[in-house]
Structures are given as structure tokens and as C-alpha cells.
Design a protein around this nucleic acid. Structure first.
Lengths: 152, 152
DNA sequence: CTGCTTGCAAACCATTTGCATCACT
DNA sequence: AGTGATGCAAATGGTTTGCAAGCAG
């Protein structure tokens, strides 16, 4: 399997612990799982299920579709990938630990981090449905965090 | 069919044009379609597909599942209902024309209207995933509308 | 070696479609 | 009366599962 270029290795060092991540979670590191990871990395933006299946088939046609489904479950399970459902694509996957945004609490000032796709979904939907580009660059999402919510 | 109480009639007069809506779009007004509409109305909040199927089966067991799918398509088509996909419920439906929010264009000042569920999804997801309640009451969504976007 | 993983094939199940019949207009 | 809509049954297609063989550790 070493003949295949591991594109994933080109990503930031944050993600290079994939072997560790799998092992410490009790999963084995298999070529199939790494190829699925590669596929997600190679697809720009969100990788839809069908794109991943297509890409994996290209990288290694001998990998069964059921293996892809199982691999995606495992990758999400160990936190190497994240799954989101957006329309009209359906389930999409992306490598965890990329861009992110913040939610700041009015009450205690705590700052929470949310993955990019959670915001992107909303932005994208507004653009698709209403042709309206929401400018989030300087928009702060204010609100109340869990603790302050409980505190009333 | 007049023996069945049309719960839908209890809604605001805005929605009472459902017969008109269907007819002008070239669709017929059938008891099955009205019962599906009833079902959506009777389910509080978003009505999931399974809830609708269950409710319709209760209201009239003789209605086939395929008819429900087809009715939902038609109702969304003519704008009487809206379909959204949210996790983990999957597709959910609601009666169109209820609460809404606005998007205001920085450039021309135009104000667009978006249905409540499009915002609710985002708010709900932040609450579910991060325990964070975004306060949108006084938050203006600024951006650029379609025309101004094109104008550059 | 041990048992987690895989490929294969069959099972599943929600959704869609074809068609003869039915009923809205 | 004419044609769109329905119920039924069969087809579809994406996802899951059972299992023997295959590898990672």
C-alpha cells in the first residue's frame, strides 16, 4: 500500500495523529481506512457520500462499498472526520480540526468554537434559497453558554 | 369527507386559500391531500415524515403511503407546506406562511423574508451541539441581496 | 496466533413507479 | 366525459448485516 501517495500527510501536523487516534480507540489501522481518509482530503470542501464512494473506487476499485460505510463510521467515531447533513447533497464529510468560528457568551465572556461547516450550512442555504450572501466576517454570534443558561 | 373536522380551517385566513392554491396550480383538491395537510397542522412544531405517516394512518387508514409522499410533494410544490431536512429527524414539514425573519441588504436596504425554520435549524443545532443559545431577537442579518451581489 | 476487518452476497427498508381504477371538475 | 389522482403491488436503490476468509497487531 505504500505505493499510494498519502495525501493526508500533506495536511497540518494536527491531523497526523491518525494512526494514534485509531489505535488508542481500539481500532486497527487498515489501508482501506486510510484510503477513505485520503478521499475525504482530496475532495475540496465538503465531501459528499457519493463523491467519497466514487473517489475511493478510483483510488482502489477493490474496496467494497460496505467497507467505505464502515470506515466512515469509524473515522467519525474517533474524531478524524465529521459528518453533517446538508441539502441537497445529503450526508457530507470533512476532516475534523480545520477552520472554525466562535460563539461568545454575553454573560461570562466564554468563547466557544464551532466547526466551519456548521456556519457554512446556514450561509449556503441563504445563498441558495434567497440569493442573499450573509456577511459573517465581522458578525459576532452573541448568546448564552450552557452554564450561564442554567444559572438563569 | 365533510364529516372530518378540517383542523386546517382553524388556522389564520392567510392559509385558507388552499383550495385556490391547488386549483390555480393545476392540481385537484382531494380528501387525501387535505388530510395530509391536516396531519401537518396537528403536529406541533416541525412534522417529521414518520409522524405525518403515522398521523395520516390514524385519520384515515385507507390512504396509501405512496399517496402521502405524492401529496407532500404537491403541497410543497404549491407552497402550502415547506420541507426542511434537520438531524436527527430527517425530513420535516410545516405549514408555510407562519413566522418569518428578515435579511437586510447593506447596499440597497432591501429586506428579504425567510421562514422561521431556516433560522430555527441553525439556532437549534447550536443549542443541541454546543448547549449555546444564540440570541437572534435583536440580531440583524446583514449582507448583500442577489441584485447587489451581481452589481458587484 | 488472535480476533478485528474485509469482500461478498443477501437482507433491509424507505421511497418511487407502473398501471388499472376511481373521482374531481 | 375526460383526465388527473389513488391504491396496490412491484421495482428501486442506498445502506446495513451475516459470514467465512484475510490481515493487523
Amino acid at each position: 500500500m505504500l505505493t499510494i501517495v498519502r495525501r493526508f500527510d500533506l495536511m497540518t501536523h494536527e491531523n497526523l495523529d491518525y494512526i494514534e487516534r485509531l489505535r488508542t480507540s481500539g481500532y486497527r489501522v487498515t489501508p482501506q481506512r486510510l484510503i477513505v481518509l485520503d478521499a475525504i482530503c482530496e475532495i475540496p470542501g465538503h465531501a459528499s457520500l457519493s463523491q467519497i464512494i466514487e473517489r475511493v473506487a478510483y483510488l482502489d476499485p477493490s474496496i467494497d462499498k460496505s467497507t467505505i460505510y464502515r470506515a466512515l463510521d469509524v473515522l467519525c467515531e474517533v474524531g478524524l472526520a465529521t459528518e453533517t447533513t446538508i441539502e441537497p447533497q445529503g450526508k457530507v464529510y470533512s476532516i475534523a480540526g480545520a477552520r472554525h468560528h466562535h460563539l461568545s457568551c454575553r454573560s461570562c465572556g466564554k468563547i466557544l468554537t464551532i466547526p466551519d461547516e456548521e456556519l457554512g450550512d446556514f450561509q449556503r442555504r441563504m445563498l441558495e434559497k434567497h440569493g442573499f450572501r450573509i456577511q459573517l466576517e465581522h458578525l459576532a454570534f452573541k448568546g448564552l453558554c450552557r452554564q450561564c443558561l442554567r444559572a438563569g
